[in-house]
């Protein structure tokens, strides 16, 4: 198991009293899987991703990443993390931004240049190395931030609503590119999203979560083939999985209605 969580609990202490962000979360993610986390705001999907990344400390249960604690995995640079905003440094070129983790991790200059060229190719940004972030569109900036997360060759890619701020057309295009990239690199991907079609289109496993307290309400193993052209979204199989996701979301919301 690449990632394994047992009875994971996380309670935040806030000024309004304790808030249970995650309750009794159990999940196994195998190597090479593409797992989406979907659910309404407050369902803990981002919190869970941050637990995997060692950015939040669970208050109960156990979680392991590559057989280590998340903290150790973070120290071993086991994952690349893509945030909702590209968060590129405005004072660095695109190439310079992608180099940032490589500089921090102490790669040699030659190695840095090699890797930057390779991952820029991978996200289809070759030729933009010398541009500054403001010279690129939002979609291109987000691709650059994905390249930055890929540059140091971690096996795991954690993505927190990476395309949430982009329009539908750009998003479709990036989804397609992300699948191709996943096929080429065979990474294990954890992907947080609000969008049902996006989750179904991308994932081998869809984790449906519900809020108050944040918990998993359904885990759906996708029956779609690995090779997925965009028009697979019109197939009956796709629509059926999307239905099941929607049902799962609705079930989680029943106590609200």
């Amino acid at each position: 198991m690449t990632i394994s969580a047992q009875n994971l609990d996380l309670t935040f202490q806030t000024n309004d009293g304790p808030v249970q962000a995650l309750k009794d979360v159990n999940l196994e993610i195998s190597k090479g899987e593409f797992v989406s986390f979907i659910g309404p705001s407050g369902c803990g999907k981002t919190t869970f991703l941050r637990c995997i990344a060692g950015l939040e400390q669970p208050t109960g249960g156990a979680i392991s990443v590559n057989g280590m604690t998340p903290e150790e995995a973070r120290k071993a640079r086991a994952y690349g993390y893509v945030f909702q905003a590209a968060g590129l440094y405005p004072w660095r070129t695109i190439g310079g931004n992608i180099k940032l983790p490589l500089e921090i991790m102490g790669f040699s200059k030659a190695e840095q240049a090699d890797r930057v060229a390779r991952v820029m190719e991978l996200v289809d940004l070759a030729g933009f190395e010398q541009k500054f972030p403001w010279q690129l569109s939002g979609g291109m900036q987000q691709r650059a931030s994905i390249a930055r997360a890929l540059a140091f060759d971690a096996d795991i890619l954690l993505m927190d609503e990476p395309f949430g701020a982009l329009d539908e057309i750009v998003r479709d295009h990036l989804n397609e590119q992300l699948l191709a990239l996943w096929a080429r690199t065979e990474k294990t991907i954890g992907f947080v999203t609000h969008s049902i079609p996006e989750a179904v289109y991308l994932s081998t496993k869809i984790v449906v979560m519900s809020p108050r307290p944040g918990r998993i309400s359904d885990v759906i193993e996708s029956t779609l083939p690995r090779e997925r052209p965009l028009d697979i979204r019109d197939s009956p199989e796709f629509i059926e999985i999307a239905h099941r996701v929607r049902d799962g979301l609705r079930a989680g919301h029943q106590d609200d209605a």
Binding site: A53, G80, F83, G87, I104, M105
Partner: peptide
């Protein structure tokens, strides 16, 4: 916070 978190994911030192 996001930019600081990004550096944490790289396990960057505070000097870095």
């Amino acid at each position: 916070a996001m930019q600081l978190d990004l550096l944490r994911t790289y396990y960057a030192s505070s000097a870095q």
